[in-house]
Computed example of a mutant assay.
Amino acid sequence: MDVPALLEAASLLVPADIATENDITVDDIWDHLAHDEWEVALGLLEELGDVHPLPHDFWESLATAAGQMRLERSAAWCRWRCYESRHGIIRADLTLRRAGEGRRQAAFSGAGVLRPMWSIGNQTSTGGEALDIARLWVEFMPALGPGERSSVRLAPLDPSRWRHLQPGQTITMHEDRTIGGTAVVLEVQGPAATPAP
């Protein structure tokens, strides 16, 4: 499919009655599509996806369209949302240790590249602390460095091991056995409901 067809397919999955904070609706997106304003339409569709849970196919169409437009960060974000539509959302407020206090000495990309280990309360079969892996997406910032704080989204390697998390719970990030950061869970949501055929 080409970009316009992908964006049109995604638009058809958006309920007509939802709107962004700025009162943008799917009708506005159709107007942008009619004028070949694909990048604007893509951005607005991403915003609508933040207002109302949308199915995996919506995010998959947006990821493919963004990739075809060579909008790499947008494509990565939409692929991230594909994952969340299938496995759920985990958001947390993360504070990294300062340089010299932990292993990290420089900032890392916030676009879901880092895959640190997390202490989330699980134990090994012998009763020791188990560390679980989850990719990390930094919200509203392109990168995060030592001593900085931001809300983040987590994509666990094994989502079933993370189902016990609750808002307010404190978890720790590890890039080795030492603590690299501390996070407070903000939100835990299950997977988006799949529409009936």
Rank of each mutant, 00 (worst) to 15 (best):
S119K: 10
V3N: 05
V14E: 04
R163C: 12
N122C: 08
L157W: 08
G67R: 10
L42C: 09
S125K: 01
P191F: 07
E21D: 11
S160K: 09
M173Q: 14
T178S: 13
S11P: 03
E72G: 09
A9K: 13
I29V: 09
L48S: 02
D57S: 02
A10K: 08
Q68E: 15
E60P: 01
G88T: 04
T182V: 15
T172E: 04
T126F: 02
L42Y: 06
A192G: 11
T124Q: 10
E187I: 02
L136E: 08
P156S: 11
M1Y: 03
M69N: 02
E8H: 02
P191C: 06
R104V: 13
D2I: 07
P146S: 03
I24D: 06
T172W: 00
A134E: 05
Q166L: 12
S61T: 14
A92H: 00
E175Q: 14
D2L: 12
G145N: 11
R81W: 08
G67E: 14
V185Y: 13
D132G: 03
Q68G: 00
C82P: 06
D2T: 06
L13S: 07
H164M: 12
R70M: 07
R103Y: 12
A99I: 14
A63C: 13
Y83C: 06
P15L: 04
G88M: 05
M69W: 07
A19T: 07
L136H: 09
L186C: 04
S151R: 03
Q189G: 01
